[in-house]
Amino acid sequence: MPGTYIPSEYLPVAIIFLFAALIGLGALVAGLLVRPRRPYVQKLYPYESGNPPVGEPRYKFSVKFYIIAMLFVVFDVEAVFLYPWAVAYDKLGIFGFVEMMLFIFILLIGYIYVWKKGAFNWE
């Protein structure tokens, strides 16, 4: 009968769900019983070390954060490109080497540029 089909092959999945719930709850309960309790204002914020959670929605961040974040992305992407190049180094040969050095050189110019422009000075 089509209505009463029980997918028994999914039983392990159900068991995993059960165990996951038990482990999660168990950790919370164990923590509740064992940990010392010393609440203070900062600790009770939803984001412990961040900004106050209530305030103007158009709170202005310093633009410095954005600059640092952008610079991080640039040099992070550089690293991402370096990995596959390093893995395929044997196959790419001298041309790949020169190519990558050029790539790093162009980024170096960018690095000199942002440095001279004072993007790394926090004050």
């Binding site: 162009i106 110019i109 960018g110 000199i112 540029y113 001279k116 422009k117």
Partner: peptide
């Protein structure tokens, strides 16, 4: 273009 960036400094 890169030279221009450096020259600008």
């Amino acid at each position: 273009g890169l030279i221009v960036i450096l020259l600008d400094l």
